[in-house]
Design a protein around this nucleic acid. Structure first.
Lengths: 368, 368
DNA sequence: TTGAAAGCGCTACCAG
DNA sequence: CTGGTAGCGCTTTCAA
């Protein structure tokens, strides 16, 4: 007497239906290989015994394909969902996955060895690494798996196809735009540069430790744009904050209550910029009359804020779609070239000439 | 001579290192079971041979656990990422998954048999079904898997734990709020009710076909609130649109150019309501002076719009976290009771008394 | 159209 | 601390 309590398997059904395991398997996966009546009979037996269909684990092992793409997002998975840019990227990637009937395995990214273990054990055919820090155990673990891998934004790696945007070009364009308007006293707000999550003023040493390629590029772009106009980078105040609107507002409050007050705030993400807009308003400052504010990314909300945000548009959804294209090309053993997508300065109403009394930075020198 | 080109497996490494497969396995999974030197030697051999570590598929089969939770989102996966409410839900769910070191397998939801196949083949330990239509092949496929399952929002099912919110209560509160302000001519905007994606005016027949429990509940709540004030439900105009701001603006333009013009627009999602705000503005109508607008969900943007949106707050992130709690309780063979989370009417600046000339619906009768 | 045999790559168990 | 054995549940030949 066999134990009825055991979970039924293909063999259970085969025996109960008086056919071979092959036939049961075919009933599920190749309906054309057996008569409809037999198929029906087998499926009925399966239902009666509570058989949930062929166990994916067995099939996976046998077929050698997982049917899923692994995704590593920046750092904490839950943070990614609070970041419009990451979500828009996922939207694009998901479109391609839908077309290919592939699932998206989002991996939780614990710091340290544990995070690496999750990646090593992930049942995936490929990896998509989105905006990861330069060094991270999970990153190495993914690369060691030697499956087709696409890196989005960072870090660039010989073993993986790269998809990114012209971060530096965009940031420089923002700086040049402000300079052209006559701004000389510019302050910068960036998302936390290092995994320690520290917030506050960024000094040269801290800058060197910046863990994300994207942050470094955008800062470098701003620097190029300002220095080209003869503005000393060392004197530009940089505040780092968690990448949220609340934090952006806080950074703006800090920067805008310093003397001399900056005439322009360059945030390297729209989230921070939208927060800065609010922070300025809370101080009773008008944007752009009292202070100009710029962002980066052009998330949907950037075009709807009051005032609408001057920012750098990067094709977020398209970036996800391109990453998906590259991934599936790789999976099909086709070549997948790196892609660097163009950005575009979008001038809206959050930037304007500084008040004439504010232009130049002479007063700043006096008070400094 | 064995083919060197073959992908290395545990056995390959074991042979090359002159140890058993067990020992190699232990080197990866139970470092404390062998001397550091031996472990190091084995790992070196593995690296040299390009062995990417134990294949997850084999382990899965052996251990019987997948290490992932399957998620089915509404309809198209890519649409979900464009829906702030769904994204906030995912944020909450992701938090719990991180804590449990479980991955999130997002399944692409093709219509028809193909969609069901994806679900049947998904390597997961549990399912979370988020706001699915009443009938969908993938839904049945998930339930047939007989793994722990949590249904969020809909459809309620005996085989799964339910997590939802007081949709009807919230919608009724909105209607009562408007009625209390003196509104009599109210029009409604809902997301597309049926999977055919049709947009436009909703008649009684169409209403009966509504595929989503949430939509039905919210409409029912509005109806209750209006009828309690003696407003005839049959005369309330209902427009259905894709759940985007653009579509909401379009619906508002249609409704607000009809005669008599409604004095209040009730949208059953914030996305639609935010669009309606814009639609009204584009017609040169002031909110709330000329027309009141309400939403549902209280997504982040609802508090930042111009004017800030009167809406019903549902705890989106918390809903995801609770779903995760239930899921992991189920996985631990613990009881997991249904949860219906409370909602709260949040009155902001998008609602006000109608102009005195507009109050009552007498004029409407004349013109109709 | 059906069935028998042969593993896919791994880990749990138990004996040394 | 190490190794041999025995499957996990499935699909894919190939032969009948």
């Amino acid at each position: 007497m066999r134990a009825v309590a055991d979970k039924p398997t293909l063999a259970t059904i085969a025996e109960a239906a008086g056919v071979s395991r092959t036939t049961v398997s075919n009933a599920y996966n190749r309906p054309d290989q057996l008569t409809p009546q037999l198929r029906r009979r087998i499926l009925d037996v399966a239902r009666r015994l509570g058989y949930p269909g062929p166990d994916p684990a067995g099939r996976r092992l046998r077929q050698g394909r997982a049917g899923a793409v692994g995704v590593l997002l920046t750092e904490r998975l839950s943070y990614a969902f609070a970041d419009s840019a990451a979500v828009a990227f996922l939207e694009g990637l998901a479109r391609r996955c839908e077309d290919a009937a592939q699932a998206l395995l989002l991996l939780p990214l614990a710091r340290g060895e544990e995070g690496a273990a999750v990646v090593r054990q992930a049942a995936v055919d490929a990896f998509c690494l989105y905006s990861m820090p330069d060094v991270h155990p999970a990153l190495d673990a993914a690369l060691e798996r030697r499956v087709p891998t696409v890196v989005v934004d960072a870090p660039r790696n010989d073993a993986a196809t790269f998809v990114g945007v012209e971060d530096r070009v965009g940031a420089r364009a923002v700086a040049e735009h402000l300079v052209a308007l006559g701004h000389r006293r510019v302050a910068v707000i960036v998302p936390t540069l290092v995994l320690d999550g520290r917030e506050g003023r960024v000094d040269a040493e801290r800058l060197k430790k910046a863990a994300y390629h994207v942050d470094r590029e955008r800062l470098e772009g701003v620097r190029e744009g300002l220095e080209a106009a003869g503005i000393a980078w060392e004197e530009v105040a940089i505040e780092e904050r968690a990448n949220s609107q609340e934090a952006g507002a806080d950074a703006a409050r800090v920067l805008l209550t310093e003397t001399p007050r900056p005439t322009a705030l360059v945030a390297t993400t729209d989230q921070l910029a939208l927060g800065a807009l609010r922070g300025a308003r809370e101080l009773g400052l008008a944007v752009p009359a009292d202070v100009s504010v710029t962002g980066f990314d052009d998330i949907a909300e950037a075009g709807r804020s009051q005032p609408p945000l001057t920012t750098v548009r990067q094709p977020l959804v398209q970036k996800g779609a391109v990453a998906g294209d590259r991934l599936f090309a790789l999976l099909a053993s086709e070549p997948a070239a790196d892609a660097v997508l163009p950005v575009e300065l979008v001038v809206r109403a959050s930037t304007a000439r500084p008040r004439s009394s504010d232009s130049g930075d002479a007063r700043g020198r006096h008070e400094g």
